[in-house]
Amino acid sequence: MESNERINSEIDKTLRSLDGLERASPRPFFHTRVQARLEGRRSATAAKNWTFRPAWVVASLGLVFALNVSAVLMYQHQASTYEQQQTTETVADEWGIDPLSLDW
């Protein structure tokens, strides 16, 4: 019994302490800041969406493919130039002439 009375007195005490409270009000420009934040999220989402459109994906893949093809062709050209130099030096050594005089 005594614990019920003590609990009831605590509840009454708590409720009386709430009587003097006023309703909370937001700080100035709260709604404006919330609207700006929501608008910022929308614009960030819109900025991401254009990158995944099919036209941009195809163009990006085409660019990557073109760069890879040009890198392979450049490597082949350098390899063939090196082979020509080696052939020129070998022939010049065999014939005993200056390799710079052989202009292929």
Rank of each mutant, 00 (worst) to 15 (best):
M1Q: 15
E2R: 04
S3H: 03
S3T: 09
S3Y: 05
E5L: 09
E5K: 00
N8M: 11
N8Q: 08
N8H: 14
S9Q: 14
S9W: 09
E10L: 12
I11A: 00
T14P: 09
T14S: 09
L15P: 11
R16F: 07
R16L: 11
L21H: 11
L21I: 00
L21K: 15
E22K: 00
R23K: 09
A24P: 08
A24N: 14
S25T: 15
S25N: 09
S25Y: 13
F29V: 03
F29Y: 06
F29H: 12
F30L: 10
H31W: 14
R33N: 11
R33D: 08
V34R: 08
Q35N: 14
R37W: 14
L38C: 02
G40H: 12
G40I: 01
R41L: 07
R42S: 02
S43P: 03
T45M: 12
T45N: 13
A46M: 14
A47I: 08
A47N: 13
N49S: 09
T51W: 14
R53Y: 07
R53A: 00
R53M: 05
A55N: 12
W56F: 15
W56M: 13
V57P: 07
V58G: 12
A59T: 09
A59W: 06
A59K: 11
L61W: 15
V64H: 03
V64E: 04
V64F: 08
F65C: 11
A66D: 00
N68P: 04
V69N: 03
V69W: 14
A71W: 01
A71D: 13
L73N: 11
Y75K: 06
Y75H: 13
Q76M: 13
Q76L: 15
H77G: 04
Q78S: 11
Q78T: 04
Q78G: 13
A79M: 09
A79F: 07
A79P: 06
A79C: 05
S80W: 10
S80E: 11
Y82L: 03
Q84D: 01
Q85I: 06
Q86T: 15
E89F: 10
V91W: 05
A92D: 11
D93M: 00
G96S: 01
D98C: 00
P99C: 02
P99S: 02
L100A: 04
L100H: 03
W104L: 12
